[in-house]
Structure formats: structure tokens, C-alpha cells
Design a protein around this nucleic acid. Structure first.
Lengths: 187, 187
DNA sequence: CTTCATAGCTAATGATCATAGTCTTGAGGT
DNA sequence: ACCTCAAGACTATGATCATTAGCTATGAAG
């Protein structure tokens, strides 16, 4: 019963994301994916040239969602440090809600330019707040904050923090420690 | 000419590591691996029950090498902050020398206990220095430093720092920023 | 010089990604 | 109403991969 399309790029990416979130991280098979959409594997090639392109689309969507999560936060916040902590918490919350997706998006190596805009869109709102905290070198400290948050989240998801403790409180503490370091200007 | 073993677990892991470092990150096929060792794919099953076990062995070896890189540094250093910066630099240098291996080791989710000892061995020397810097909560700040270093390295390798700049200098700056935050004790 | 555990082999299975070519639908012009 | 034809999904096929079963040749030990 073709012609009125039964699926779309969006629906495929959505279904792929759900499958990734369930099974093992790279267990996404086109057969599974097609079945969950009610179509046959070759039909997927109408929408994506190959599996790698499909996964790239999923990863770009993940980055876009991360951006969407970060944007709304800085509302009437006057204290830039409070705003940055709020963003960091939102970021971490998203990653915990979609751990496999998040890991997948950050295990790829992005050599193409197609990701630049997406990454920039994610970075700019953050950088705006960093600039109000660090007098100079806001790009460096934007990267520092991102590294800190991303690293913490990845190590959590990968179960590398095996020695217990309150990981929520530790996260806040660590982010605030970095922001304190920013305040005490030196070098 | 069987019986005198032609390969060993160590040689297999070594060859696997070289193949991983070349091709795409998950392109390691048992056929390739066997060919590079001069044997046939089924022979690998004499040494590992399956491919996942082989990759786990490779990842544990990666973590062990990271430990070995971190241990020798703190020699006659008296300043704990200088020691921590030196360790951070070594860690980053290793990751840059074996980027694919490093990414592979940290994209897995370690649910088993077999990794605990390896991780602990990597963490303890670091924690020793952290304790001399942070008056309290050394475990939290050990995790913070690790997250910072790991996150920075991963984002570098994944080419997510696309806006240029001196990434070496930025790394030092960021690590020192966190250490400064540790010094300015608050909460 | 016989035994036998060992290390590697060949062959076969089932799952996967990918491609080529075919059939069916239904929108738009006649 | 009907014909055209591009779009969408299908069947069928090939190549590659991980894995299993069972066989063969080596060489150390008695």
C-alpha cells in the first residue's frame, strides 16, 4: 500500500532512538528498526543512503535536543554562576534520561562540517554566561565547563564511579568548584 | 604446524589494539584480526570465549596502561598542584597517542566487577595528591578532576573543539582553574 | 614408539548490511 | 472516467560477519 508515505526521516530517527535506548549501544539493526516501523529493511534506504547516515542523523538530533534543553534555562537569572549551574543540571538530566543516545552521540568522531552549526548553537548560550564570569578567555573556560560536565556524565553512565556517594551533590560541588576557580583570577 | 602456540592472549590484544587504532572505531572484525596474526578466525576462540570478551580484555589493558602512565610521575614533587598537573598532562598525552583505543575503552558500560580493581589502581595515586590539596571530600574532587581531564580529552578527540585556539595551553589553564577552585575553600 | 592433549584447521550456520530489480499505489492531466 | 508515471515499498540476492562442530597434525611424556 505504498505512495502515501508510511514513515518519514523523523519517525525513523525517533524509532531508532528508542531502539538504541533499549538494547546494547551498537545493537541497532536495520531489520529490528524496520520491523518496529512496520516496513521492510530496504525501504529505509529511501530515506537514508546507508546506516552510517542514519546514525549521524540520530546523533545530530541528540545534539539539537541538548541545545534545546540548555536554551530555556537562563531566564530572569541575574547571577551568571547560578545560571551556569542550572544549565549544567539540565544537561546532566537530559543525559541521564537518554544515556545510550548520549554515549552514542559522543563516541563518534565528527570529521565533517555538518556538525559545526549544531555544536555552535549548543555552545553560544553557554558562552554568553561564561563571559559574565570570566573576564578573559571565555572560549577556553566554556570548553572547560563543557569538558567537566560531559566528563562527569560519561563516567557516571559508564559506571566508572563505583565507590558510591551522593553523585547529585558531588556534581553541584564540582561545577561550583570550577566556577570558584574562575572567580579567583590568576595567570 | 600446531602445538607450539603461534599466538597468545597478549599478542592478540596487541594486534587488536593496532587494528582499532587504524580503522573506524568499531570496525574490528575477527577476520581482519586473524589475518593480521597469520591464523584463521575460529582459532581466536581458543583464547577468548567471544568477541566481547576480547574487547573487554583490550579495554582493561587500556586502563592498565593509563595507570602505568600516571604512576611514575609524582616523584620528588613537593607541590601537589604541580604533581596533579603533570599527571593530567601524561594522561592526555597517552589518550592522544591512542585516541581510538581510549574512546573505545570509555564508550563501554562496565557492569561487571572485574573492572573495579583496575579502576581503583588508576584512581589511588591521583587521590593521594588530591588529598593534599582539598581539605575535605577528596573522593568528590578526584572525580571532578578525572571528569575534567577525561571530558576535555574526549571532546578533543571527537573534534568537538572546532573553533581553534591553543588546545595545549587551554588544557593547562583549565586544570589549574579547577585546582584554584579547590584552594579557595568554600562549602 | 605409542599416547594424547593441544593448537590450529575446514566447513557450515544464521544473522547482518547492502543492493538490484519489480510491483503497486494514487495524484494530475487528458 | 481513464491513462501516465513517479513515488514508495516489496522480493530476491550477495557479501560479510560471529560463532559452532568436528577434524587433523604436532610434539611432549611415558
Amino acid at each position: 500500500m505504498p505512495y502515501p508515505a508510511q514513515v518519514s526521516r523523523e519517525r525513523i530517527v525517533l524509532a531508532a532512538s528508542e531502539l538504541v535506548e533499549q538494547g546494547e549501544i551498537d545493537s541497532l539493526s536495520l531489520a529490528q528498526l524496520a520491523q518496529s516501523l512496520g516496513i521492510r529493511p530496504p525501504s529505509l534506504y529511501r530515506y537514508f543512503p546507508n546506516k552510517a547516515a542514519l546514525i549521524l542523523a540520530l546523533n545530530l538530533d541528540t545534539l539539537a535536543q541538548l541545545t534545546a534543553v540548555n536554551l530555556p534555562t537562563p531566564q530572569a537569572q541575574s547571577d551568571p554562576r547560578a545560571a551556569l549551574l542550572a544549565i549544567a543540571r539540565n544537561y546532566r538530566t537530559y543525559a541521564h534520561a537518554h544515556p545510550k543516545r548520549y554515549l552514542l552521540a559522543f563516541s563518534a568522531v565528527y570529521t565533517e562540517d555538518s556538525t559545526q552549526q549544531v555544536l555552535l548553537a549548543m555552545a553560544l548560550p553557554l558562552q554568553q554566561w561564561v563571559e559574565q564570569t570570566a573576564s578573559s578567555d571565555s572560549l577556553t573556560h566554556l570548553r572547560g565547563l563543557w569538558a567537566l560536565i560531559h566528563g562527569y556524565v560519561v563516567l557516571e553512565i559508564s559506571r566508572m564511579f563505583q565507590r558510591g556517594g551522593d553523585l547529585d551533590a558531588a556534581f553541584d560541588r564540582i561545577v561550583m568548584t570550577y566556577l570558584s576557580g574562575l572567580a579567583s583570577r590568576e595567570t
